[in-house]
């Protein structure tokens, strides 16, 4: 019979009868963190912090270890806001509020936009979508279906059009209509393709011709089942577009998305949203406490 074992019960067993956190405990810890895609460097950093605490406080029992561990991890997510966006409000004086959505191929950008459109609309905002992915087969059709589902208007041009031109049109149209929120979809691109990354910079500049301080949010979408490559994605997209927030998708699977710890630790970009399904309701505001708990949820 499979026994479900909590990560912390494992640690409890390992620590039983010991006055200090020893090699074995730390090994278990390492395994759990790496198994959640937290990555080697961040794992080592967490373990080091715990070792330091243990050395300083001399005796640490299991429950103390638990809370130290959770504190340390939470501390890494410090830039992620506690409750922001809970009501999908937008900052005063920024109307329309322009969100540019970027990321590598297939992570869930278009779906996340559909979910955002749903939530902003529910919060009483007038939303406008811009179909600036004119490359991927049927990308415009896909976003059009989301626009129908959420009852939100969309600005689009034929496939193959210049994405910058679509973005420009969208923002101009949003200003004319008095939209509260404009969300611009972009084609998926791998961060090591220089010309495609430069295209994002171009889209940004074109948007700024209409609204100088836009885009107000550059949302990088990461697939929660991605491993260490997500760190490189964060790095390259930040370099190209000054990413201001992260959305982590597909956390309804078994992957734990621990790589966001590594990213939060290195780049100080807040995680704002998580995707937990394919329907428009399946978007949650990121809650770091819940996230930390989920990292250590029961597993086989």
């Amino acid at each position: 019979q499979k026994t479900k074992e909590n990560f912390f019960t494992k640690i409890t067993k390992a620590i039983a009868g010991k006055s200090t956190v020893d090699e074995e405990v730390l090994d278990q810890l390492e395994e759990a963190l790496i198994g959640a895609d937290v990555g080697l460097d961040t794992t080592i950093e967490i373990i080091k912090r715990i070792e330091d605490r243990v050395a300083r406080d001399k005796y640490v029992n299991t429950s103390e270890l638990n809370s130290i561990l959770q504190d340390e991890i939470r501390a890494m997510l410090v830039v992620s806001p506690e409750n922001s966006y809970k009501d999908f409000s937008t900052p005063a004086g920024k109307k329309p509020y322009v969100i540019l959505v970027v990321g590598v191929n297939g992570v869930g950008k278009t779906t996340t936009i559909g979910k955002l459109a749903y939530n902003f609309t529910k919060a009483g905002k007038n939303v406008l979508l811009g179909a600036a992915d004119t490359f991927r087969a049927a990308a415009v059709d896909q976003l059009t279906i989301w626009s129908d589902r959420t009852g939100v208007p969309i600005v689009k041009q034929p496939m193959g059009s210049d994405p910058g031109a679509v973005a420009f049109d969208t923002v101009q149209s949003g200003v004319a209509r008095g939209s509260d929120v404009i969300i611009i979809d972009t084609a998926g691109r791998l961060h090591n393709k220089i010309y495609l990354m430069e295209e994002l910079g171009k889209i940004k500049r074109v948007v700024q011709k209409v609204i100088p301080d836009a885009p107000h949010e550059v949302l990088l979408v990461l697939d929660g089942s991605t491993g260490q490559n997500a760190v490189e994605q964060a790095k390259q997209f930040t370099a190209a577009t000054d990413v201001t927030a992260l959305a982590i998708t597909k956390l309804d699977g078994t992957a734990k998305g621990g790589v966001v710890l590594a990213i939060a630790n290195q780049f100080k970009i807040p995680v704002k949203f998580i995707g937990v399904g394919e329907k428009m309701e399946d978007l949650l505001i990121f809650d770091k406490h819940e996230f930390v708990d989920s990292l250590f949820k029961l597993e086989d």
Partner: peptide, 10 residues
């Protein structure tokens, strides 16, 4: 996806 992390096994 070749970028998949630890969960690829499951």
């Amino acid at each position: 996806d070749s970028m998949t992390g630890q969960d690829a096994v499951n």
